[in-house]
């Protein structure tokens, strides 16, 4: 998948097509299971209010699409989490919790990947200068982990130039439910 392909597929206005890969945009190795299929993807654009309850319907729709395409638990969990975190960032930082402001959510669900493009009406931010929440005193902060989680669970996370639009892609992974789980 090339940056901006979703935008092209969705015929998204050109200013937000100018994505650049943010540092660490592709974070981890992943395995694509089976051959890449070329089924026609499902696309949907939603305009939602900037409040946490407004995400419920888009969230249910997204999860039902993943279920229909038989995505595994790990994929569903990852996309669900990134979707939730991106929306929370959009309404908190982009819309500044003004529920009258809208967030535009565009989804492309294909058999081999899920793409989400989320755009708020805020002034944006520079994702490369967000403090690392895993270091020093930041570890004790009550916020600032959403971007790290988005980058950790999605294969591509990239922002447009001003930083008010995030494009995320997750390819279908092989199930890795038996990942390390160490508790004392």
């Amino acid at each position: 998948m090339r940056p901006g392909l979703l935008a092209a597929v969705l015929n998204y206005p050109s200013p937000t097509c100018a994505f650049r890969l943010s540092a660490g945009g592709i974070n981890r190795g992943f395995v694509i299971s089976g051959p890449m299929k070329l089924d026609k993807p499902t696309k949907r654009t939603m305009l939602v209010d900037s409040n946490t309850a407004a995400i419920e319907e888009p969230r249910k729709w997204l999860l039902s699409q993943l279920q229909q395409l038989d995505y595994g638990d790990d994929d569903v969990f990852a996309v669900h989490l990134a979707f939730q975190e991106a929306f929370y960032n959009a309404i908190r930082h982009g819309s500044e919790m003004n529920s009258k402001k809208k967030v535009k959510i565009e989804c492309l669900i294909a058999s081999d990947r899920i793409e989400i493009l989320m755009t708020d009406t805020g002034g944006g931010f520079d994702p490369d200068v967000v403090p690392d929440c895993r270091i020093g005193e930041n570890l004790y902060k009550t916020e600032g982990r959403g971007l790290l989680l988005m980058r950790s669970y999605m294969d591509i996370v990239e922002f447009n130039e001003i930083g008010n639009s995030v494009h995320m892609v997750r390819y279908r992974h092989e199930s890795n439910s038996s990942s390390s789980h160490i508790q004392r």
């Binding site: 989490l81 004790y140 989680l149 990942s179 004392r184």
Partner: peptide, 18 residues
């Protein structure tokens, strides 16, 4: 396991007794 992964990614396993 899935929730624990979130704790690991954010390194909160270092500050919580789990």
């Amino acid at each position: 396991p899935k929730i624990y992964e979130i704790f690991k990614i954010t390194r909160l396993t270092k500050i919580f007794d789990i």
